[in-house]
Design a protein around this nucleic acid. Structure first.
Lengths: 105, 105
DNA sequence: CAGTTTCGTAAGTCATATCTTACCGTAAGT
DNA sequence: ACTTACGGTAAGATATGACTTACGAAACTG
């Protein structure tokens, strides 16, 4: 039910680079925003979108907030794509067989 | 390299329902647009976005054009999410171990 | 306790994506 | 040949989304 917001969140290139920066592990906002061509508040807004989508988890640590990729959120998207993959492949094979049948007869 | 456009294409709800309608197999534009709350030209535009993203294939058949899900396009997206999943899980486990270590010592 | 870091939120601007209607070409039917 | 069905494209209106600056709230630091 929430994979819709997750896929919308990942549609933005900036948010994907944020995700990429977190592949190695959790980071505070400053480290994520560092070197990016946009302002830190903009990064914060992206982090909010990703969190709302269930793709990130937040861990307050004193003064800072550590963001990390939430495996469950990623898994929901994977599940969706898996069913899509299954259906697409089945339809593809069926079409190929039908076409072969039509050609031979 | 093309999974970026694929994920952007799937971010739109209308385009996801189009994809869902094609899960059972190829359909002409009229059948796809039938019953949808938007105009047929709008559907055509969505079909173009999905095709450009490599998620759909087109097969002209006389007067009509049959659209079908392209398995390869879906697979590229799956690959991206698989690597993301691997990294996310590895980082998650590492963080859990580090935290356990910090707690015990 | 005053000052500095860290980070989130608010308001406003601007670009992009989506929709509509109108129109055109091509194939099929009569 | 004329008409109808199918579907892509163009132009324009509008909504949505991403960015900026300004500001406020906590938590460390001296």
């Amino acid at each position: 039910m929430t994979y819709e917001t997750a896929i919308a969140a990942l549609a933005d290139p900036t948010r994907r680079t944020i995700i990429d920066r977190l592949r190695g592990g959790a980071l505070p906002v400053g480290a994520i925003a560092d070197g990016m061509p946009i302002s830190r508040p903009a990064v914060s807004q992206h982090l909010r979108v990703l969190s709302d989508a269930g793709l990130l988890s937040v861990t307050p640590s004193g003064n800072r907030r550590l963001y990390a990729i939430a495996p469950e959120g990623v898994d929901e998207l994977r599940s969706y794509l898996d069913t899509l993959w299954d259906d697409a492949l089945a339809a593809f094979k069926r079409a190929a067989e039908d076409q072969a049948k039509g050609t031979s007869e």
